[in-house]
């Protein structure tokens, strides 16, 4: 889950930069007590950053260290664990499979979650609060329970453990992210923009594609990014739903860990982190998250 922290600094950078600048100005005019306060403030921030980033740094050290055990200080730099990771068919298969599942999950969660959020926000549906609570409940339940429940349901339905079943499980636990982020945007949505479009001759369908969708896009995309990352490093739900030969990367890593502990685990983790960051950057560049958010 540590990787899911990455999107928020990327998304929030403009606001953060502005806020810290104004804080600087305010504090610069204060006297010594203000300076002490600022020092404490900075120290606290650094401590939090270290706390959040240190595990990731350790993983990097582990992955690059040539010895097969975690060793500190590292004795050198080598890419042997990366070579091992990329040449192992099991890992490669799991990596590709994980990506496939994550992409399918993201698509399903985005379409379903965004549609649900729109219906909840606009549909004037009785009991919509209960619907929201139900949709968000996978966030509150331990994911292992969700996995177990799905597993039992599939057994009862006698469907085995198909890939779509795994994707459905991932979708279930990722929909809340899309619903939340989309609802947040819709909550602040000025419906007069839609009225203006209709007033100028756009049919309700046209209005949706010309005005509503482009304006809720940032929320939907942010949810989609969360969905991708949560699916990509999903462990508890996958644990019950993968079938032999079709295992996701976290499950394969776990199985590997049971017998071996060497830098391959670190290399795999580094690849996972880089992939997640890559997805965020790619989405940001192609669909232009920031330009839409900033307006």
């Amino acid at each position: 889950m540590a990787t899911s922290v990455t999107p928020s600094p990327t998304l929030a950078r403009p606001e953060l930069a502005g806020a810290s600048r104004s804080t600087d100005q305010v504090i610069a005019h204060r006297s010594a007590p203000g300076r002490t306060g600022r020092a404490i403030y900075l120290a606290a921030n650094i401590a939090i950053l270290v706390f959040l980033l240190a595990p990731i740094a350790i993983v990097f050290v582990f992955a690059l260290n040539p010895t097969p055990f975690i060793q500190f200080p590292p004795v050198g730099v080598s890419l042997r664990w990366f070579e091992k990771f990329f040449s192992a068919r099991d890992f490669m298969h799991a990596l590709v499979f994980s990506l496939e599942v994550a992409v399918l999950t993201t698509m399903a969660a985005t379409v379903l979650g965004a549609s649900a959020a729109l219906a909840i926000a606009r549909g004037n549906i009785p009991g919509s609060r209960i619907i929201v609570a139900t949709m968000l409940s996978p966030l509150m339940l331990p994911a292992i329970l969700t996995g177990l429940a799905l597993f039992q349901a599939y057994v009862l339905l006698d469907v085995g453990r198909p890939v779509w079943g795994l994707v459905a499980g991932h979708t279930l636990v990722t929909i809340p992210y899309v619903v939340r982020t989309t609802l947040a945007v819709l909550h602040n949505f000025d419906t007069r923009l839609e009225e203006a479009a209709q007033n100028l001759g756009a049919s309700p369908t046209r209005t949706f594609f010309e005005v509503t969708l482009p304006l809720v896009k940032p929320g939907v995309l942010a949810g989609g990014i969360f969905a991708f990352i949560v699916s990509f490093d999903q462990f508890p739900v996958s644990l019950f739903l993968v079938s032999p030969g079709n295992e996701t990367l976290p499950i394969t890593l776990f199985n590997y860990l049971k017998f071996d502990l060497d830098g391959t685990i670190g290399a795999a983790s580094v690849i996972s982190i880089l992939l997640a960051v890559l997805v965020v950057i790619a989405l940001d560049r192609t669909v232009g998250l920031r330009s839409t958010v900033k307006l």
Binding site: L193, E195, G201
Partner: peptide
């Protein structure tokens, strides 16, 4: 008759310009 077929135009209080 639905709004989009009325051939009227409206200037809104907050202008309702499309921000995108």
């Amino acid at each position: 008759v639905p709004a989009h077929k009325r051939d009227m135009a409206m200037v809104f209080q907050n202008y309702a310009l499309f921000p995108h």
